[in-house]
């Protein structure tokens, strides 16, 4: 079962390329909660609010229909 923790300093944002040295994962490797957060980012919904799922790590890049990066605000 996935957990969520409050990390308001992080958000999921679309990026155009993978920064060198970044950890990269595919959408299928994420928990349901993390998948929902990426889906919200893909839909352009506000993704800065609410707890960020624990399995998302800062600076990692998620491969979905586009690339998304977990970044500081």
């Amino acid at each position: 079962m996935s957990r969520s923790i409050v990390r308001p300093e992080l958000a999921v944002r679309r990026v155009e390329s993978v920064p060198s040295g970044s950890r990269v994962r595919h959408f299928d490797e994420l928990s349901d909660a993390a998948q929902d957060r990426v889906l919200a980012a893909a839909e352009g919904e506000a993704t800065d609010a609410g707890p960020l799922p624990a399995d998302l790590r800062e600076n990692e890049v998620i491969v979905f229909t586009r690339l998304y990066r977990v970044t500081g605000r």
């Binding site: 595919h26 979905f64 229909t65």
Partner: peptide, 11 residues
């Protein structure tokens, strides 16, 4: 389980 296809403009 789940499996996605993310190759296209839509998922």
């Amino acid at each position: 389980s789940s499996y996605s296809i993310t190759h296209f403009d839509f998922p």
